[in-house]
Design a protein around this nucleic acid. Sequence first.
RNA 1: GCCGACGUAGCUCAGCGGUAGAGCAACUGAUUCGUAAUCAGUAGGUCCGGGGUUCAAUCCCCCGCGUCGGCUCCA
Length: 639
Amino acid sequence: MANEIHLTVGGSQRKTWPAGTPVGEVLAALEGETSQRPVAARVNGRLVDLSFPLQEDAILEPVYPGSPEGREIFRHSTSHIMAQAVKALYPGTKITIGPAIEDGFYYDFDAPVSFTPEHLQAIEKMMQEIINADLKVRRRELSREEAKELFRRQGEDYKVEMLEEISDGTVSIYEQGDFVDLCRGPHVPSTKRIAAFKLTGIAGAYWRGDERNKMLQRIYGTSFESRQLLEEHLRRIEEARKRDHRKLGPELDLYSIQEEAGPGLVFWHPKGARLRVTLEDFWRQIHYRSGYDMVFTPHLARVNLWECSGHWEFYRENMFSPMDLDGQKFVVKPMNCPFHILMYKQKLRSYRDLPIRWAELGTVYRYEKSGVLHGLMRVRGFTQDDAHIFCRPDHLEEEILRILDLNVRVLKAFGFSEYAIYLSTRPEKSVGSDEDWEKATSALRAALEKKGLPFEVDSGEGVFYGPKIDIKIRDALRRTWQCSTIQVDFNLPQRFDLSYVASDGSYQRPIMIHRALLGSLERFLGVLIEHYGGAFPVWLAPVQAVVLSITDAHVPYGEGVLASLRESGLRAGGDFRNEKIGYKIREAQQNKVPYMLVIGNREVESGMVAVRERAQGDLGPMSVAQLIERIKKEAEPQS
RNA sequence: GCCGACGUAGCUCAGCGGUAGAGCAACUGAUUCGUAAUCAGUAGGUCCGGGGUUCAAUCCCCCGCGUCGGCUCCA
């Protein structure tokens, strides 16, 4: 005799059902045929399969494929389908793990063949067959021992290894056709529910993410609840590809990286250099206005300095090998801090001198493993927009607040107003007293709160020498980039025995703050190229305007216009070649120059220029003075 | 560093065991033109580098270097 249970669906629908009814049946009866079908459900907040039998009164919420949870579920199911296809096509393949990730899923395999794009096509075909076969996805619970036996018989060593480490007595497995996987679920009820999928890439990945372990083969893919959404997603990837700074940068003649010179070493061409100079000028100005001083320090130092700082001990694998000079070892700097510290120590400092704020666009060299280099984003020589603040403990919160203030102002100038902020706290291995850590961490936290900046706490993710704030910016394609970092340091002041004379005549230890707002100029410029898609705003554009002559007869007038633009400080160029105007416009447009100034008979006669803006098109005639004023107004950084 | 793919003219790419080709760009000439490509001609290559196999290698094999996709790491 089945008991009756009461179910609440969608807040209002209360109904009575026989106990043991599967979730899917209840939802199907309530939803009718017309509405979107759920892929899973929440029962009293817990995610379950549609086959889950309801045994007690519950609040029932359907999970639809379009929701973030729904997507995660069917993507996870798609990864199972892929694993099934791979096992069917390539016997002997061992499966490991295959989760849903942001924008898709992957599955890691230990396979006897090494996968190529052609294999992916075959796998996709097989996956489609599995989907068309409408295989039911069944959940089963068994004891850990039974599961181990099951996977052992199938030769799934990785699953057995995983089971060894699971402490629960019972585990769940999911089956579809002849495929079985150890999995928590939930999953879609049938393979047919995967509307649109695509395999997107092959890569190596270490078993359990540990480089000492075996390298497995990972296949990436994605799936969506409709074909249109999948196509939209693929278009977005295409858009990101078009904006790739590694393509746009050389195309716009901004920079190059050359095999002949070495990997990860950047050459800034004239246009890229203009961009960088503009950025640096802005940066220096805003720092002077914010109470910083600029310093310059050497690129080399005796290895002893790095021994004293601790870098030689802890950071050596990232440093270029020392060079022998007159029997002494010198090292190229991977960081600027020890130099600023040496400058601090040049004289006795009074508490009245603090805080000292020293900023430097310091070029550093770090040995990065060859496989991690990536355009401008990850290089071996780069310039940090570095600063070190030496202050008293009672200054700390105020200084952090000032940094955050400056930080936000600088980022906003480039149109970055959305951040993901992380406060990282004390890690296991660290130096300094509990009290220091506590004070510094709460100063960081208080400053963030006062600024009203929302943040997440990354527990134990601080650097060994102190807590830190990291700010990631979100770009025009909504991708995030780590740029700014603010780190409190108890370690270096102690290692270098820094001190200041306090008001009572005693010697006290200053606190040091390391901070970078843009991070590295190379990376930041790379981010900017992608953020703007190469079409820099007028204030940054390496060339703000080009003068285009229609025929040779207009060249002298055009040269005059160009001269006055340059005279008034604008970055202007001219294209006076014997080419048709359409050709010149096309080229200027491809170079993403904000203003194109067309010069023909009409302009020569009226003493004007015909202005074309790269996005708005033809703006009509304007006097040169008017134009200069317009561009100058647009060229002021927004800070 | 690890796994895999790739490397042909400045760029995008074709080719293939018998000595390398296109389009765009460059250069020269003609054309003097009004808002995203005027026409014609010329020139341009250690086919990433080094070994090996072969009568013969850009092509096949091995070793490097570099790039790309990831992993690990990170500004």
